[in-house]
Amino acid sequence: MESDEASLRGQAEIWKYMFNFADSLALRCAVELKIPDIINSHGGPITLAQIASSIPNTSSDPDISCLARIMRLLVRRKIFTAHQPSDGSGNSTILYGLTHSSKWLLRDTLGDDQHTLAPIFLMETHPWLVSPWHCFSRCIKEGGIAFEKSHGREIWDFASENPEFNKLFNDGMECTAKIILKAILSEYKDGFDYLGSLVDVGGGTGGALSEIVKSHPHIKGTNFDLPHVVATAPAYPGVSHVGGDMFESIPNADAWIMHDWGDEDCVKILKNCRKAIPEKSGKVIIIDVVLNPEGNGLFDDTGLIFDLVMVAHASGGKERTENEWKKILKEGGFSRYKIVKIPALTSIIEAYPQ
């Protein structure tokens, strides 16, 4: 009897994993329709009809039945709330509200102190980024890069040739950087105090670096990334944008990186950072995941998934355990390091040349 129950539970688990994509794609639908913003703009829970009537760019009457079924699943997943207040006559209408989860998916009605995961959610669930996941078995059997197998070229080349993808990617990276940066600036205040200059290696459009410089105006900031990336970067006070190749050289200063690269490439980048920082006072600040495969922390499970994101999207990139970080830091010329935990998916790794 116990064996039958365990087997049935196992079957149920496989059905769940088979359709896990339904959760992310139903939620993508809600983000595309800006449902979190619609509810937020009303100042409180609203009816399905109110949501439907506020969906932007709708050319005909929305299919409320379809919307109701999607919202039903998202309520069960605790993305939205649903309750039915009675008007006293026995009539009631379901009112849908936000939760702590859906507040992270606001796009247009953010408060001054709020950040959003909507851009990276739309990025990671886009067919361009999902299709490489279907190439994992080929990568195991044949070797090679999943993104290249799916799109015929690596992600950086694809971005340089496709302005729409480049914007999608940069928007996703920028929103993530802002969230992580908020945790850094609150928990790592003293870490930037003695730096005169700071280079963000692979800094995208420079939004994260600009916030550091704003909070520490004594720092001269250099945002360093590929030429096609910095070409679209806005101007920020105290920040200069420099296009180049981190495998060739890095502007002199202190630097923070990394995870899109395999061990060999990381060591090359670290060696270039080692050349670019002062011998005694310099340090490299790495903002990245430190994997704890057996951990039960808030983000430990997501860290393992991010490692597979690297398989899907990067050219040999990976997330690393502390021992793996220690190894490549030593090979890159950094004999000492310190890990600083922050309330975020990532940690801070300070690396010192001696």
Rank of each mutant, 00 (worst) to 15 (best):
I286G: 01
I287V: 13
V284G: 13
P293W: 05
N292P: 03
M310Q: 14
M310F: 02
E294P: 04
G297A: 03
E319M: 10
L304F: 07
A312D: 02
S281T: 15
V311W: 10
I285Q: 02
N292M: 13
K318F: 08
A312M: 00
S281M: 11
E319Q: 12
D300K: 00
M310I: 03
V289M: 11
G303D: 01
L304T: 11
E279L: 15
L291R: 05
D301Q: 14
E279W: 13
E324G: 02
I305V: 10
K326L: 11
N296G: 15
I286Q: 05
V311S: 10
E322H: 14
V284C: 15
E279Y: 11
W325E: 02
G303A: 03
L308E: 07
I287L: 09
L308G: 03
F306V: 14
L298T: 10
V284W: 00
D300Q: 00
P293Y: 08
I287F: 00
V309D: 15
V289N: 09
V311H: 09
I305F: 13
D288W: 01
L308M: 11
R320A: 01
P293M: 08
V290K: 03
E319K: 08
E279C: 12
K280G: 05
N292H: 15
G317K: 02
S315D: 11
I285D: 00
P293Q: 07
A314T: 11
S315P: 04
L298P: 09
N323V: 06
E294I: 13
S281H: 03
P293A: 07
K326R: 13
K283L: 09
K283I: 06
V284L: 02
N323R: 12
K283M: 05
H313Y: 02
V309A: 15
V289Y: 03
S315F: 08
P293I: 09
W325Q: 10
R320K: 06
G317D: 06
V284F: 09
G317M: 04
I287K: 02
L308D: 05
T302G: 12
V289D: 06
D301K: 15
V284R: 09
G317Q: 02
P278T: 10
A314W: 03
G282D: 13
K327F: 13
W325R: 04
E294R: 12
K327N: 10
E322V: 05
S281W: 07
I287C: 04
P293C: 01
G297H: 03
E322G: 01
S315L: 07
N323G: 14
G316N: 04
A314H: 10
G316A: 03
G297T: 00
K326P: 00
L308S: 04
I305A: 11
G317H: 00
S315T: 12
D288L: 10
K326Q: 14
N292G: 12
L308T: 09
G316F: 04
I285A: 08
V311C: 13
V311G: 09
V290H: 06
K283C: 11
G303Q: 03
M310E: 05
K283A: 11
M310C: 10
I285R: 06
N323H: 12
E319I: 01
G316M: 06
G303Y: 05
I285H: 07
D288G: 14
G317Y: 00
G297Q: 07
R320H: 08
L291M: 00
